[in-house]
Design a protein around this nucleic acid. Structure first.
Length: 499
DNA sequence: TTAGGGTTAG
């Protein structure tokens, strides 16, 4: 049948609906369907609910409107509607529908279970899990993923070990979980076990594990995944390559990131952004800006993420004026309205560049309510330049937003300490004590030969601490020479702690 | 119709 240039029937509508890329398209098909009287088949309205639900609150509203007037509903209609509500965070309403269902299948249970898991309500999820009449690998994986996200790797492991049949998905979840937490040995051990198990990797598994490695700087596992990809002649999609570039860049292997990037047959905006950020983060400002011009030459339109990278590159390489110029060019030449992240970059740029007053002004004049990241950035800049008075003002704002963050107090104490104002250092400490804020000492870790070495302030627990501190002294000495400084205290960072 | 999926300031 042909109407308005569209050929479709009961069988093809679900496919067409699946391919919709916007709410308007779904609406158009919906009115076609109603006009053509193709509503008798349950697959069509079910597909409509599903497609509507892909497009946010408005879509879910439209789906609900349809769901309510449907004469026949099968379990899939209910499941789709519940899943749609969960996508927009309507857990309460989803639960109500779930309770009203005339019959439930495994998917219904798994869907509502995932709703609680995604909301971080693991106790309720556990309760549901126990009440389920039967469970499959999806139910187990849903719980597993919840515990991993909550950082409870002990419970995650219990569920992983106990689950009856493990597909690639639970393996991916637990390995990514360990990797994200920086539990290297277990992550690697399980990765090896998974490979021996003979499971075939797919895009999602590779991307998920690589991004977990990127997050915690876990190069060793990232390299393993990369060599599996090459050994298996895995079809390296743009997404997988992007994940590799990002992982290498975040783990500090810029040369590897660069070589993957260069060998990519096809690149998208994310590939360019990932490479640009890689250079920017590691202080290769010129290289980052070269990437920026090259991507434009090759026809890629920069987006907001690109400009975060560009501004970050300018900050970390000391290109203050250039950074300011890029910031104004964003909107004027590229039509990208700066978001709060961009203002954050600017405050960092100006602040680190010593233009603290300007940074402070920008915080007050920007069209966003400053958040704790903004104030935190400014506080760090005050610390860098020993701007005691400004730091106190900034801290007041910061404490309004996050009253009990120990890091902020420590930062202020450090600023007073650097200025030799020991009375105020003591007063900050007293203030922390009086409201019960405890300073957590920051720990940093590096990974050598699959072994993670962790450091805290004045840490002497490492077997080679002697050599380590000798090296720090040498670095401090060399830096002074290079920078032609005499009496300045050069902060040499060991982990997050300035010695 | 249900579990894992890329880039974003400090």
């Amino acid at each position: 049948m042909q109407r308005d240039g569209i050929y479709a029937d009961n069988f093809t509508y679900p496919f067409l609906l699946k391919a919709c890329t916007g709410l308007k398209m779904v609406e158009m098909l919906h009115s076609q369907i109603e006009k053509n009287g193709f509503f008798s088949d349950i697959f069509v309205p079910n597909a409509l609910i599903d497609s509507y639900s892909k497009f946010g609150g408005l879509g879910v509203k439209a789906a609900l409107k349809l769901f309510v007037v449907m004469e026949d509903r099968d379990v899939v209609s209910w499941n789709s509607m519940i899943s749609g509500l969960l996508k927009v965070g309507e857990l309460g309403q989803a639960r109500k529908l779930f309770d009203e269902m005339p019959e439930r299948d495994m998917v219904s249970w798994n869907t509502i279970l995932d709703g609680y898991v995604k909301a971080g309500e693991m106790e309720e999820a556990f309760d549901l899990f126990q009440k389920m009449p039967e469970r499959n690998v999806v139910s187990w994986s849903t719980m597993l993923s919840g515990y991993c996200k909550a950082g409870d790797m002990d419970m995650a492991r219990v569920f992983f070990d106990k689950m009856p049949a493990k597909t690639l998905v639970p393996w991916t979840i637990i390995i990514s979980g360990y990797a994200e937490k920086g539990i290297v040995k277990e992550a690697i051990r399980l990765y090896d076990r998974m490979e021996r198990y003979g499971l075939e990797l797919d895009d999602a598994a590779v991307i998920s594990i690589l991004s977990a490695c990127a997050e915690s700087g876990l190069l060793a596992l990232g390299v393993k995944v990369h060599s599996s990809i090459e050994r298996l002649r895995f079809r390296c999609s743009v997404l997988v390559c992007n994940a590799l570039v990002d992982m290498y860049a975040k783990c500090g292997s810029l040369d590897k990131a660069w070589s993957v990037f260069n060998r990519m047959e096809k690149r998208d905006l994310v590939s360019w952004n990932a490479m640009l950020h890689g250079f920017a983060m590691h202080g290769y400002g010129r290289e980052a800006l070269q990437i920026f011009s090259r991507m434009k030459k090759e026809g890629f339109q920069p987006d907001g993420v690109t400009f975060v990278g560009v501004l970050c590159a300018c900050t970390h390489s000391g290109f203050i004026d250039e950074g300011v110029e890029f910031f104004y060019a964003m909107e004027k030449d590229y039509g990208i309205v700066p978001r709060i992240e961009h203002y954050g970059c600017m405050i960092d740029l100006l602040g680190r560049g010593g233009r603290l007053e300007e940074a402070f002004r920008l915080v007050h004049t920007m069209p966003f309510e400053p958040n704790e990241i903004i104030w935190g950035t400014l506080l760090a800049a005050c610390r860098l330049h020993n701007a005691v008075e400004l730091a106190e003002k900034v801290l007041d704002h910061l404490l309004e937003l996050v009253p009990s963050d120990p890091g902020n107090y420590s930062m202020l104490a450090n600023i007073f300490a650097a200025a030799g104002d020991w009375n105020n250092v003591a007063s900050v400490r007293r203030r922390m004590k009086s409201i019960g804020v405890k300073k957590l000492s920051g720990a940093s870790s590096i990974e050598i030969d699959d072994e993670v070495h962790e450091f805290t302030v004045f840490d002497k627990s490492h077997p080679k601490y002697d050599t380590i501190y000798q090296m720090i002294d040498r670095l401090r000495h060399d830096l002074k020479q290079v920078l032609h400084l005499k009496d300045t205290v050069i902060p040499v960072e060991v982990g997050e702690v300035v010695i």
